[in-house]
Design a binder for these strands. Sequence first.
DNA 1: ATTATATACATTAGAATCTTATGTATATAT
DNA 2: ATATATACATAAGATTCTAATGTATATAAT
Lengths: 113, 113
Amino acid sequence: MSNSQLIKGSLQTIILKLMESHDKMYGYEITQKVKELTSGEIKITEGALYPALHKLEAEGLLTTETQMVDNRVRKYYSLTKSGQKEVSTKIAEMKAFLDTLDKILLPKTALDS
Amino acid sequence: MSNSQLIKGSLQTIILKLMESHDKMYGYEITQKVKELTSGEIKITEGALYPALHKLEAEGLLTTETQMVDNRVRKYYSLTKSGQKEVSTKIAEMKAFLDTLDKILLPKTALDS
DNA sequence: ATTATATACATTAGAATCTTATGTATATAT
DNA sequence: ATATATACATAAGATTCTAATGTATATAAT
């Protein structure tokens, strides 16, 4: 993510969640999809993306298959069974954390607006 | 934060936001307040807290005054003018990021529940 | 008496995750 | 000939965290 270093650690969750609605995706496609979905507000850099993909593969959450398309290599990633479970876990963890964070960040006068 | 390493970079925002509703706070007090507000779900470790406080002070967002209480040293932190402005900025940035994140993490069938 | 816990500060080693820069290679548009 | 897009990847350095350690006082428990 090239912009806000505000929140680190969300990249894995983003990747896994995207995979949930796409049978397979390759790295470059992920960067473009995220840019498209967020109107350019989140830009995933290669230096963050590829290590994250390699790690998710090493952890058994993603598998790969390489294809040649237009004389260029594409490495497609897909969710494994384990990966499918992990998506739900990671999303739940993030929601829980954000709910907890709200307890601090929301003004006590929570009935505003 | 002892639990989720999911979200790094939110500690500064947490500290500044807490300061907004407390004229002055000392380090240990912050750890207890956060634990209390989040029912023990977020535990700030000293290794994260003190460097963060020192950095915020170095950036001119916090000032300090030391007091002796019960024969123990307490270092009180307060928001500077600059710090007061920065709270709003940081909160706005975090909200913006979370809104953007939702574009990816929320299922397309956004009308669900 | 001694040990554990609470209060209160702080630093350090190591891990994890990011940015920025660089590298290789093909294809297309200017 | 150059820039941009597509497509992979690594490496140096920065930042931010955890876990461990250190110092010191006060109090509660055994």
